[in-house]
Amino acid sequence: MSIIDVKNITYDYHKKDDQGNETESVRALDDVSLEVKEGEFIAVLGHNGSGKSTFAKHLNALLVPTGGTVYICGMDTSDTSNTLEVRKTAGMVFQNPDNQMVASVVDEEVGFGPENMGVPTDEILKRVDDALNSVGMYAYKDSSPTRLSGGQKQRIAIAGILAMKPKCIVADEPTAMLDPKGRADVLKVLHMLNKEQNVTIILITHNMEEVIDADRIFVMEGGKVVMNGSPREIFSHVKELQRLRLDVPEVTKLAFELKQKGLPLRDGILTREEFVNELRLLAKGRV
């Protein structure tokens, strides 16, 4: 069974005038269908307004579709008796860490979720410790979240989700406000959770360098999924991505530019290592 099974969903936002009459409706999702298997690392790309965040909010029942169905581990998200279980299964991390902190001490922050779920106290304490260890923040257990950096706060937000033992984490631009170190740390944690604890990850981002290690990339445009494939497949379409207001990693762009100028490099180079190896081969051929 797929952990996420989205069948033909549409979602309409309704605009209302000051009398509360509907004036206009905007289709934010338009017949989206996709499946994600447990343990996959998925990246979602798309320009501002393409429907990424609306899609993400459907994965833990913050929004339910206007038409079509979202199943999370087989549970229909529009059935309100499933809401709590859906939210335990798929946890969300948002862009701004400051908007997600509720407690004054880190361990209370992380324990907030399981406490709300009615988990027994001993078990909460254990989960909090485990979650903080997982994200490398155990040393800050007794600190105040306000004294942490953005990257540290995001790792605390992730720990807060982990303490609810989710099968899936949906992270909506979790690195957008972070410095390079914070960015790298958050990504490392998401990949580690994916590899070691088999947590399914859905990462929404505008940073092309962050998605090259994903198993699959969905590209959204106009509320539809317009591309779906491995990073190598997706990033071999440089021109198409630029038309969608997106980009490719710098190393891919450099390889593409060199190829345009006549160096016989292969398409879809994603890492510096591959790039250096390709150039090495090319240089050898010349000697």
Partner: peptide
């Protein structure tokens, strides 16, 4: 806690692999 532009890393790697890179570049 910072980093360099992606291009600077690529050139550093090329240099370490023995390519005669001189100086630094900032753009593709």
């Amino acid at each position: 806690g910072l980093s360099a532009p992606a291009i600077s890393y690529i050139l550093r790697d090329l240099k370490e692999a023995g390519f005669p890179i001189e100086g630094n570049a900032l753009t593709v």
